[in-house]
Design a protein around this nucleic acid. Structure first.
Lengths: 233, 233
DNA sequence: ATAAATTCGAGAGCACTGCTCTTGCTTTGG
DNA sequence: CCAAAGCAAGAGCAGTGCTCTCGAATTTAT
C-alpha cells in the first residue's frame, strides 16, 4: 500500500534513511559509544532538536541500527547458503554459512559489537529485534533439516534430564528433527558467535595466528556436533 | 617492600581503593556506559578534578576494573577446580569449572560484559589485561593436561592445514599435550564464553528455558570436544 | 629545624552530550 | 480557504570528561 506518497511522507522516509545512514557511518567509524545525535544532525545540516521528529531518543536510533545489523548478517548467511553448490555436503554448507557470518563480522566490527556485544541500551532487547535476530539461526536449522531429510544425520547424544527441554525446542523451531538436535543446534549457534566474538574482541591476540584455518576447523567441529558428517567419513 | 608507608602513601592507596570500590558499585548498578567520574567523586565527597590525581582518565579507571574483573572470574574458576573432589573424573572437573565461570557471570553481569562484551575503551585491550585474562584458560588447560598424564585423553581430530598452528599452540601453552589438543582447547574456550554471553545478553530469551541443565549439557559437550571422556563410556 | 620540592584538593571553566520547550513556518486534508 | 497537523530552528537545562590555576599540606633535602 501507498507506493505513491505525498511530498511530506516521501521526505520523511528519505530523511529517516539519511539519518540512519549517517548514524551507521559514525557507528562504523567510532563505535556505538561515540555515536552522537548532535554530530549526526550537524553532518546532515540540521539542528539536533529536529532529529527528534524522526527518532524519539538516541536509544531508538540505536535500536533501528540493531535491527538493520541483524538483517544484514542474516542476509549474509542466507546468501552464503543460496550460493553454495547444491551438490555440497551439508557440513560444507554449514561451514560456508559460518564463514559468511564471520566475514560479515570482520567487515562490520562495530555493527557486530552492537548486536552480539554487551547490549548497551537497557537490559532486554526491544521486541522489534527478535525477528531479525533469528535469521542466522534459521539458516543453520535449515541446513540440518535438509541433511536429515536427505541423507540422514548422526543424532547427537542427549543428557536424560534435558529430554523435556529438547522436545520443546524441537517442536518449537525444528519440527521433524530428532529432539536431541535441538539443544545441539542451540549450543552450536551460541558457540559460533563465541568464536567470532573472541576473534573480533581481541581475545585471540597472540593465541590464534592462522585465523581463517582455525575458524574453518572449529566450524567443522560445530557441524559435527549437530550431526552433520563430512563426505569422507 | 614498603609494607609500612608514610601517611601520604597510605592515604593514596586507600583512596585509590575507595574510588575503585565506588566505581564498581556504580558499574554493577547501571553498567559501564553510565559509569560517571563525577558521580563517583560526588559519592566519595570530593570534587571531580581531584579524582584525576588517581586515575588519569575514565578509560584508565575502566581498565583497572577490567583487570579486577578478569582476576575475579579467574579466581572463581581456580576455586572451583580446587574444591572439586580429587577423585572426580576430568570431565566432571571441566564442567564444574565452566559452571563456576557461568555462575560468576550471572552474579556480575555488568562486570562480565565489561570484559567479554564489546571492548568499550579503544579497540585493543591494554597490555595490563593480558595476564589476568588468561587465568580461566590456564585452568582449563590444566585439567586436560592432568587427564592426559593420568588416564589419557581421546586425541581430537585435526585438519591437516592446521598442523603447524597446532604445534605452535601446543608448544606455547600446552607443552606435553598432543598438538591436536591446542586448537580444540582454544575453540572450546571461546565457545564456553559464547554460551555464557548468549545467555547473559538475552539471546536465549524464549529459546532456552532450563538453562542450568542446558549449560551443563553443553559444557559436557565441550569437555568431550577436547578429549575428556566421561567415566561411563 | 628550616627551606625547597612535590603532592593534593578545590574551584572555575571549556566543549560536548541527550533532551525539552517554545516559536514561527509549511504542508495537508476537509 | 482555513484550521489542523507536521516540521525546523533556537534557546536552554542538566549532565559529562577533562584542563588549568591556585593555595594548602606534606614530604624531602639541606
Amino acid at each position: 500500500m501507498s507506493t505513491v506518497q505525498g511530498a511530506r511522507a516521501r521526505a520523511r522516509t528519505e530523511i529517516t534513511a539519511a539519518i540512519k545512514d549517517e548514524a551507521r557511518k559514525q557507528l562504523a567509524a567510532e563505535g556505538a559509544a561515540k555515536l552522537s545525535l548532535r554530530a549526526v544532525a550537524r553532518e546532515l545540516g540540521m539542528v539536533s532538536s529536529a532529529l527528534y521528529r524522526y527518532f524519539p531518543s538516541r536509544d531508538d536510533l540505536l535500536t533501528a541500527l540493531i535491527v538493520d545489523a541483524y538483517d544484514a548478517v542474516g542476509e549474509a548467511a542466507e546468501r552464503a547458503l543460496a550460493q553454495a553448490a547444491p551438490a555440497d555436503a551439508p557440513a560444507e554448507r554449514w561451514v560456508a554459512v559460518c564463514a559468511a557470518v564471520r566475514t560479515w563480522a570482520l567487515a562490520h566490527p562495530h555493527e557486530y559489537a552492537l548486536i552480539y556485544g554487551s547490549p548497551v541500551p537497557g537490559y532486554t532487547a526491544p521486541e522489534a529485534t527478535v525477528g531479525p535476530a533469528s535469521r542466522v539461526g534459521l539458516v543453520l536449522i535449515g541446513i540440518v533439516r535438509d541433511a536429515h531429510q536427505a541423507r540422514g544425520i548422526a543424532v547427537p547424544r542427549l543428557a536424560p534430564q534435558l529430554r523435556g527441554e529438547a522436545e520443546r525446542m524441537a517442536a518449537e523451531f525444528a519440527p521433524g528433527l530428532p529432539p536431541a538436535v535441538g539443544p545441539a543446534l542451540v549450543a552450536a549457534w551460541a558457540q559460533l558467535f563465541g568464536l567470532i566474538s573472541f576473534e573480533l574482541f581481541g581475545q585471540f591476540h597472540r593465541v590464534v595466528e592462522e585465523r581463517d584455518a582455525f575458524f574453518a576447523h572449529a566450524a567443522a567441529g560445530l557441524a559435527a556436533s549437530v550431526g552433520l558428517v563430512l563426505p569422507g567419513e
